[in-house]
């Protein structure tokens, strides 16, 4: 078999994440950033002698960055996607800094389906895939419909069990 005949990661059909995930992602982002802003404003109002100019310019910068991040997340959403291939699981993300991660089924230790508070409101789940050793090579695919996440998880655990049988 020559190198050219290998199945190539360059010709993968990517499955996009569920559209509702964009909202989940942005709600989480805004809740957190505005929460931090609120604490900051509350603190500077009560701390004596904090110049208002500094307070409002920091707050303004914070909101500007939040808007920028929102735009990046919005544009980056269509990049995010996963692919279940014959022997491995792939995940792609990143608008400016793109990354494609591949974990072969034979190297998966176990997998979990998780659901955050905001995700639950939209019926979404995340699929976490764990490998041995450190956590660097673990993979998390967010924004899956609950049923899809369960289905992939079951498929993975069958694959992992089948590999151990061999």
């Amino acid at each position: 078999m020559s190198l050219e005949e290998l199945p190539s990661v360059a010709e993968v059909e990517w499955q996009g994440l569920d559209k509702a995930y964009l909202r989940v992602d942005l709600i989480g982002l805004w809740l957190f950033r505005l929460g931090v802003l609120g604490v900051f404003l509350a603190y500077t109002f009560f701390a004596e002698g904090f110049p208002p100019v500094v307070r409002w310019s920091i707050a303004g910068l914070w909101v500007f960055l939040l808007l920028m991040t929102t735009v990046l997340r919005y544009l980056g959403f269509r990049i995010k996607g996963y692919a279940v291939r014959q022997h491995d699981l792939m995940y792609r993300r990143g608008l400016l800094f793109r990354s494609v991660t591949v974990v072969p089924f034979t190297r998966i230790q176990h997998s979990e389906v998780e659901q955050g508070v905001i995700e639950r409101q939209f019926g979404l789940s995340s699929l976490s895939v764990f490998t041995a050793g450190g956590s660097q090579s673990d993979l998390v695919i967010p924004g899956l419909k609950r049923e899809d996440a369960e289905r992939i998880r079951n498929f993975l655990s069958q694959k992992v069990a089948a590999d151990e049988e061999e």
Binding site: V9, F97, R98, S99, V100, V102, V103, P104, R107
Partner: peptide
Amino acid sequence: VQSIRIRQSF
């Protein structure tokens, strides 16, 4: 190898 990642900046 148990996982491989390709990264590309703009």
